[in-house]
Simulated assay, not measured.
Amino acid sequence: MEKLKLKLLYADLKSDLEIIEKELEKALNSSSHLLNDASLHLLQAGGKRIRPIFVLLGAKFGDYDIQQVKNVAVPLELIHMASLVHDDVIDNSDMRRGRETVKAQWNNRVAMYTGDFIFARALTYMTELDNQRLHQILAHTMVEICNGEVIQIEDKFIVDQSLKDYFRRIKRKTALLISSSCELGAVAAGATEKDARHLRRFGYFVGMSFQIIDDILDIMATDEELGKPAGSDLLQGNITLPILLALQDEAVRPYIEKVVAHEQLSEEDRQAMLKKLRKSPAIAEAKKVSDKYLQKALREIEQLPKHPTRKKLRDIALFMGKRKF
């Protein structure tokens, strides 16, 4: 239902998104049957395609041409896909969106080479771009994502970290890609520097809000809704905002300490932990932080020229900041 609501918000982009989807499939074609199968396994798992959507919307503030814009939307989505494959290896994740991950379906080695292959295909697509600024944005995005993946490894199972550490991590993990999506679309379509800047800032704030909600939903949603066990972030050692805030809750803290001490939680303990976390004030506090970022994103929209796309950006931002799963 949630995914259907989102699709309705960008229904007029359907034909252009289909073009991007076909390009993604074409980009993942390989002479290796194994790489083909693993890459298409990831592509067919779907996803909301949030990043290509924001590329297209950003381009609406310039001279919109799907044949031009697809050349930035495709490599950006490939960068995102590659990072997901690597993330699943780092987190030892067997499920994503209700399907087996590449590392679970094959193994870690195949997953790592698949991620590398997808990164390489993104570089191939970038050769189609003749604007140096587009190359700079995409290259910076790739470097920062890699930095973010290493920082995530370094921060695993560490509860003695600041909110600044968490925000730095999710900026690289999520916000940067959405920020780059909005900016790339604007730059590719020749939008003004001012509009590209506001779109970049909008994407950053939306991305921060989106990831915080994602971290909350990892606790609040059911296993079925998530397509993986609820509480997986903590069980994998990823200390998210609601977990950091819940450290002050005496009813929850013992479970968190048990996980970070690398003690195995029984299914009964996992359910008990989730029950207490869902009642914790930490959830409402985390939502307030997400809402602050969302409000900042909406203020950036007001700085853009009056255009029908402004409402669409606002509607999608509100959806992302208020979604249930």
Results as ranks from 00 to 15, higher is better:
286 A>N: 04
154 E>Q: 09
100 E>M: 01
22 K>P: 03
243 I>N: 02
292 K>N: 09
94 D>I: 05
36 N>W: 00
206 V>E: 10
139 A>Q: 14
46 G>T: 02
231 G>S: 12
124 T>D: 01
99 R>G: 02
214 D>N: 06
133 R>T: 10
126 M>R: 07
253 R>Y: 00
304 L>S: 09
166 Y>G: 00
317 A>V: 02
119 F>H: 09
35 L>P: 01
121 R>P: 08
127 T>Y: 07
18 E>G: 10
133 R>W: 01
49 R>N: 05
133 R>D: 07
182 C>F: 03
285 E>K: 11
3 K>V: 12
155 D>A: 10
154 E>T: 08
302 E>M: 05
23 E>F: 09
84 L>N: 01
283 I>E: 01
222 T>M: 00
275 K>R: 06
267 E>K: 14
90 I>C: 10
317 A>D: 02
88 D>W: 06
128 E>P: 12
262 H>C: 00
74 V>W: 10
243 I>S: 03
171 K>E: 14
4 L>P: 07
238 N>Y: 00
13 L>T: 01
113 Y>F: 06
176 L>I: 14
48 K>Y: 04
214 D>C: 09
261 A>C: 08
295 Q>Y: 03
209 S>G: 10
67 Q>Y: 11
130 D>A: 06
27 A>H: 03
318 L>W: 14
233 D>Y: 15
127 T>V: 08
